[in-house]
């Protein structure tokens, strides 16, 4: 369920050059055009939607590298 929400937020805030629909869950989002600035917007939108706060340890390039990785991080934060 989170995967779908992550995809939705990504398509609104990710400013990707590749449409989110054409991406696999493990596709590299940086390859798909995710910039560091867009990552900030994405993170704030995810925090708002899921009512979580990304800890410092999760604020890395890896966390935002794929849809799967974002959803996993959110999942962990919701636990």
């Amino acid at each position: 369920m989170n995967i779908e929400k992550v995809r939705e937020i990504l398509s609104t805030h990710g400013r990707l050059t590749t449409p989110v629909d054409s991406l696999q869950d493990d596709s590299d989002l940086y390859q798909a055009g995710l910039t560091s600035l867009a990552t900030v917007g994405l993170m704030l939108a995810l925090e708002d939607e899921f009512d979580v706060e990304f800890p410092d340890s999760a604020l890395s390039r890896k966390t935002f590298g794929s849809i799967e990785s974002i959803a996993e991080t959110v999942e962990e934060l919701l636990e």
Partner: peptide, 14 residues
Amino acid sequence: FGRGGRVMAATQKE
């Protein structure tokens, strides 16, 4: 700047 800046910093370092 800010928490988002940490992601940028990590990217720059990587």
